[in-house]
């Protein structure tokens, strides 16, 4: 196993993102992940949600520990991969959970699973920390990334809404899929993605804009929206 936390960041704009060729291979491999998930069906209920956030919002102390058990590993994993060192990751985790406690009452089960809601708060905080500290994420070598790609079981374990999004990503062009991945997972700016993928900035923006709007619909929001196919 490679310790990602120790080599995830650089202090200069010099980055080490993979080029598009490798991206395609990763994406192709990931296609099989959600495709094998039988629950990846739009409209299916989100598995694993137990009203934990609602209980936290109600001030139930027992739910706090349960929430930590449920999401602690996920938040810690995200923080480790998007923080320069363990100490920074620990600070980030504490800030993220403060946000979870504060915003638990805003969780809407009709929009996403608890896992996705928690991931949204974590992503928000982690990208914010990256931005403030002026750091740019760099990615591990391609092979390492493949080694850490989620298994079908792990992908399904993150909830049906995540599986649906994974499946939707499969249907996108590899170039668009990679632009979204760099933006959503690595928190890269659009201009950095354009530079890395050697694409015009407008193309990258278009990929991300169309992709996110489509994923929003796959998540269950905006069922009546008319964006798809018109943008």
């Amino acid at each position: 196993m490679v310790n990602l936390a120790l080599s995830t960041f650089a202090n200069s704009p010099e980055t080490h993102y993979r080029r598009s060729a490798a991206v395609v291979q990763i994406s192709d491999r990931k296609q099989s992940t959600a495709a094998r998930n039988p629950n990846a069906k739009k409209g299916a209920s989100v598995s694993g949600d137990s009203g934990l956030l609602q209980r936290v919002a109600a001030g139930e102390q027992a739910a706090v520990a349960a929430c930590l058990d449920q999401f602690g590993g996920l938040v810690w994993s995200l923080a480790r991969r998007l923080s320069p060192n363990e100490a920074d990751a620990e600070d980030a985790v504490q800030e993220i959970f403060v946000e979870i406690w504060r915003f638990a009452d805003r969780f809407d089960p009709s929009k996403a699973s608890e896992t996705t809601f928690v991931a949204m708060l974590a992503r928000r905080r982690l990208i914010d920390r990256l931005r403030k500290h002026g750091r740019q994420p760099i990615e591990e070598e391609y092979e390492d990334h493949l080694e850490h790609a989620p298994s079908a079981e792990e992908s399904a374990g993150l909830g049906n809404d995540v599986a649906r999004v994974a499946q939707a990503l499969e249907g996108m062009k590899p170039e668009q899929r990679e632009a979204i991945r760099m933006s959503a997972w690595l928190g890269m700016s659009h201009s950095a993605i354009a530079e890395e993928m050697d694409l015009p900035l407008g193309t990258v923006k278009s990929h991300i804009r169309r992709g996110l709007i489509a994923l929003r619909e796959d998540l269950g929001a905006g069922e009546t929206a008319q964006y798809r196919g018109t943008m």
Partner: peptide
């Protein structure tokens, strides 16, 4: 939320 789900779907 869509971006967060995409993060979960594409992260290691």
């Amino acid at each position: 939320l869509a971006a967060a789900a995409a993060m979960l779907a594409t992260a290691p």
